[in-house]
Design a binder for these strands. Sequence first.
DNA 1: GCAAAGATTTGCT
DNA 2: GCAAATCTTTGCC
Length: 218
Amino acid sequence: MPGRRVGRIVEVEAYLGPHDRASHARAGRTARTTPMFGPPGRAYVYLVYGMHDCLNVTTEADGTPGAVLIRAVEPLSGADEMREAVADRRIERRRTAAPPGVDERRRARPVPDHRLAAGPGLVAAAFSIERSMTGLDLCDPASALHLELPPASDRPVKPVTAGRVGVGYAGEPWATLPYRFIDASSPSVRVPVGSARSGDEPGEEPRPRGRLAANHRA
DNA sequence: GCAAAGATTTGCT
DNA sequence: GCAAATCTTTGCC
């Protein structure tokens, strides 16, 4: 399928229920957080900082809140489509005129493939994800946006854990619990210093991994 | 009803 | 390295 955007999920963060002071579910079941309380495998897309959409995948049984934030994806195919989608969204969300020369400079020095979806807001932009996709069944291959299992031949994950980003307001222990999961083998992530190496011992079960795929056009 | 802060990215100093 | 851009949701009066 031409233009199909596919990438390897290389960084995620886990958000738990109301007891997790860093989770949106800390406010309980509200209009915004209702999807977090729904069935697993569905999309929960929210707006952060008034400008970026972020994709979460619900994880718990229906009635129990929990989700995983997709923080970074390494493009495997459709990189040009992603670049176009990111550029489109930047223009789309721009309310004030861009400084002169900015767009020209960007065209002259395009973002390298591995950085196209190297952040939660960029993942949404690169895959044309928006809040209206909340509730979408990401486990259904027919969904415009969905999760896929990689072939066994994929390079192995170098699992690393770290504290979640931007949740200092939650206080301890929530701000520093190792709920951020990184594949250090990817050029699309930056491994923080002092982060804990986890698993990856010989003979251990392969770590879960996955891909994000978009069939829809930008 | 209003004020504050936010699971971020970008561009300039 | 820092501050701006931008708007929704939550918390408190």
